[in-house]
């Protein structure tokens, strides 16, 4: 196949863009500085399409499509913002806030939280839905890190980074529905996990204060997930 055949042209928010055929709408949009909100997506990890914040309207499609997993197609007409989509996103964010105990003022990630940033950016000033106030455990058994399920959004970035990049597969998900929890090994305390290498990648990719390094809060708790694409490229280079 010639190089030209691999290029697709489409419009995103009425801007003409071109992208490789294997790129997603999200990648194409970000390359052209068109912002689509995301939470479970992280460059360097596989996509799960779970947070539903990147839903966009594609002309001719029956439903809204997640931009993170939808490949570009020739002549596609994508709308990333409309009153309807924006309203859905705000409500989805509210659902996130209301389902667990997201109280920014007392959170270690205050100021460094992707959920908080999204709320600010999408103009979600308050939560109309009743908070669920679930009673969830905090596991501080690991010498360096803590998991606080009250702040977890179940994006599974920790599960994916541990399996895909570190290769330890320490993290997993148990339970279903609102009872889902991320767990280490077979729900052993994190500090007693035999597979955890204490690499801390899960902490760096966690979008909220659910996973954090002990004795670091506020400005000192900045996370650095930007190492992932670099690691991935280096690993793939080694394999070739």
């Amino acid at each position: 196949m010639s190089a030209e055949a691999n290029i697709r042209t489409l419009t995103i928010d009425e801007v003409d863009v071109s992208a490789r055929a294997d790129q997603t709408i999200l990648e194409a949009a970000r390359e052209h500085n068109i912002e689509i909100p995301t939470l479970c997506h992280l460059e360097g990890l596989s996509e799960v399409g779970a947070c539903r914040l990147c839903l966009v309207q594609v002309k001719g499609a029956r439903r809204l499509l997640p931009a993170c997993v939808t490949r570009v197609e020739e002549g596609m007409e994508v709308t990333t913002h409309s009153p309807r989509i924006d309203r859905y996103r705000t409500m989805v964010l509210e659902l996130f806030f209301a389902e667990r105990n997201h109280v920014c003022s007392v959170c270690v990630a205050n100021g460094n939280c992707e959920l908080q940033t999204l709320a600010l950016r999408l103009g979600m000033t308050h939560v109309e839905m009743p908070y669920q106030y679930p009673q969830l455990p905090v596991d501080a058994s690991h010498p360096r890190f803590t998991v606080d399920h009250n702040r977890c959004v179940l994006c599974t970035r920790c599960v994916r980074v541990c399996g895909e990049i570190e290769g330890a597969n320490t993290w997993g998900v148990m339970g279903r529905g609102a009872q889902s929890l991320v767990i280490t090994d077979l729900k052993e305390p994190w500090g007693e996990s035999e597979t955890c290498t204490s690499c801390g990648k899960c902490v760096q990719v966690c979008p909220t204060g659910a996973l954090f390094e002990k004795s670091r809060a506020g400005m000192r708790a900045q996370k650095h997930p930007e190492f992932l694409p670099y690691l991935r490229i280096m690993r793939e280079g080694e394999q070739q």
Partner: peptide
């Protein structure tokens, strides 16, 4: 609900 996506879970 399996708990994967938030609209269904919450």
């Amino acid at each position: 609900s399996c708990g994967k996506c938030v609209p269904c879970r919450a």
